[in-house]
């Protein structure tokens, strides 16, 4: 019997949906007799307790402090929770917040630690986390021998957000003293992507070098519109200025975070491009080169001309 604690994150007093995803991840490894608690640091934590009281959550730990981004404070909260409750597992979403407090909290408290976890399971009583390595080229299973407490950050848009009304009790916890080394200046919104939402799209049709010419790009915008997809592209297309950079999928571009179907047409599948889409469950690749790297990660592959396939696809919509 042990406790699992999720560290929920808010932004300007609004709960981040990735926190509900972290609850799902934690709930998946909860064993009989375990308790699942969710800690939230905010100016009005009680106001967020209802949203966190979802099915499977036994307790919401409300830490009244500030809505500002204060990673040192959250790190201190983690330290206090470890000292007081000795949880077996702490989970938080792999966001900019977690990047700022989780590694330090893991080191200071001697915790087992893994970041950007995509899957979580039990092997007997042992916890096994799966994450990518070597720029997403391999998947690694990580266990934590000899660690009483493990801290994990979970990749966003991989776990379903937890739902279902729960009946968690709400406990107040005093904010621990923290040596605050940062100053919150305010939140800055990312550049406007002109309504293009690659990270939020479930269906992406992506084009690469095979499109050959700027004049040909328009027909794939048209096709994407017709089939209900968001048009994405590989780096050379955005580099040429043929499509906005907001449509570029890859290491220096966008992550196809919510994508369930990715149709790659004329995309060779460079390592940089794969970084942004390799995780998608259903990848369909169309390429004239049967040895293109994209086929090594595709569920379905078509060795053929992207224009011919696009034209045939159009006939079905």
């Amino acid at each position: 019997m042990s406790e699992i604690i999720v560290i929920a994150i808010q932004r300007d007093g609004e709960l981040r949906s990735s926190s509900l995803e972290a609850i799902t991840a934690a709930r998946g490894v909860k064993q009989a007799g375990d308790t699942l608690s969710v800690a939230i640091v905010a100016a009005n934590p009680q106001g967020l307790a209802g949203a966190l009281s979802v099915e499977g959550v036994d307790e919401v730990i409300a830490v009244k402090a500030t809505d500002e981004f204060q990673p040192d404070l959250i790190e201190a909260v983690v330290g206090a929770l470890v000292a007081e409750r000795k949880p077996s597992l702490i989970v938080t979403a792999h966001t900019v917040d977690a990047w700022s407090f989780a590694p330090a909290a893991a080191i200071k408290n001697g915790l087992g630690f893994a970041t950007d976890v995509m899957a979580l399971r039990r092997e007997g009583a042992d916890l096994v986390a799966t994450r990518a390595g070597y720029a997403e080229k391999v998947l690694m299973d990580i266990d934590f021998p000899g660690k009483d407490t493990v801290l994990l950050t979970t990749r966003t848009n991989v776990f379903e957000p937890a739902s279902g009304q729960g009946s968690a009790k709400v406990t107040e916890m005093a904010a621990p003293a923290a040596d605050i080394a940062t100053k919150h200046e305010g939140w800055k919104q990312p550049a406007d992507a002109g309504g293009i939402d690659i990270p939020g799209s479930e269906f992406i049709l992506s084009i690469g070098r095979g499109v050959a010419d700027e004049a040909n790009v328009e027909q794939f915008l048209e096709l994407a519109d017709k089939v209900g997809a968001t048009l994405g592209c590989s780096r050379p297309i955005a580099d040429n200025g043929w499509l906005p950079k907001a449509r570029q999928v890859g290491q220096s571009g966008q992550l196809a975070a919510s994508c369930r179907l990715y149709v790659a047409m004329g995309v060779s599948g460079s390592v940089q491009h794969q970084w942004g889409m390799k995780h998608v469950e259903n990848i369909v690749a169309v390429n004239t080169d049967p040895e293109a790297s994209i086929f090594s990660i595709a569920r379905y592959g078509i060795v053929g001309d992207m224009f011919e396939i696009a034209s045939e696809l159009e006939n079905h919509f």
């Binding site: 780096r235 955005a238 580099d239 950079k245 220096s252 571009g253």
Partner: peptide, 11 residues
């Protein structure tokens, strides 16, 4: 500060 913007110089 954006690697994709900087890369334009290459061309």
């Amino acid at each position: 500060d954006d690697a994709d913007v900087r890369r334009a110089i290459v061309f």
